[in-house]
Amino acid sequence: MAIIITDECINCDACISECPNNAIYEPDSEWALSDETSLSGTVTSPSTGEEIDADEKHEAISDEFYFIVTDKCTECKGFHDEPQCASVCPVDCCILDEDHEETEEQLLAKKVWLHGE
């Protein structure tokens, strides 16, 4: 599963530097899959098989609190033993996203897709 940030977020900034996938964004920030990953141009999504523009800017998912881009979240698989955002969050608002279940194999494949490693 990907991680989500709930509306209990206090915008403390503790999580953003901990994310190895650069999947966490400040409130009201545009985002792209290519932001600080190896993705660029047209890529094929590992989850849907669709071709997408990795450089396309998307609207913020939240304008009130930090947010995690599901397509970039790997729960830190391949980097750490546990999600780093959840481990540093002082208010425990980084939780598993029940709506986006993924196996460890899928999460590791996403890591390779994002970073080419």
Rank of each mutant, 00 (worst) to 15 (best):
E101P: 08
V91M: 03
S29A: 07
E101V: 14
L107Y: 01
D97W: 08
L33N: 01
C15V: 04
Y66Q: 09
D28Q: 13
D97T: 10
I4L: 15
E105Y: 03
E51T: 10
T42C: 06
T42K: 15
T70D: 13
C73M: 02
D81Q: 12
I95N: 05
H80Y: 15
A86F: 06
C76I: 01
T48A: 15
E82I: 05
D28I: 05
P20E: 05
N21A: 10
A23V: 01
E56C: 12
S45H: 14
S45R: 12
V112C: 04
E102P: 01
E36H: 15
I5L: 09
K110R: 15
G41T: 06
L39H: 00
E18R: 09
E82H: 13
S38W: 05
L107M: 05
L39Y: 00
T48W: 15
P83R: 01
I24A: 00
G49N: 07
E101A: 12
C19P: 04
K111H: 06
D35M: 11
L96R: 04
V91Q: 02
E104D: 11
D7Y: 06
L33T: 05
D13G: 15
A2H: 04
L96I: 06
S87Q: 08
E82S: 14
E105H: 07
T70R: 02
I24K: 02
V43H: 00
I52P: 03
L39E: 01
F65R: 01
Y25M: 02
S87K: 07
H80M: 08
D28K: 13
P20K: 02
T42L: 12
A109T: 05
D55L: 09
V88G: 02
D97Q: 11
G41W: 12
I4E: 15
V43C: 00
T103V: 02
C73N: 04
C15Q: 07
Y66K: 01
D99E: 14
D28P: 11
E36Q: 14
I68W: 06
E30C: 04
A2K: 13
H115N: 14
S40Q: 09
I52Q: 06
C19T: 01
I95Y: 03
T42D: 06
N21S: 09
I3P: 00
G116W: 01
A86Q: 12
M1E: 00
D13N: 13
E105F: 05
A23I: 01
D55F: 09
H100P: 04
P90K: 09
L107C: 03
V69S: 08
G41M: 10
E101N: 10
T6W: 05
C12R: 02
I3D: 03
E82N: 13
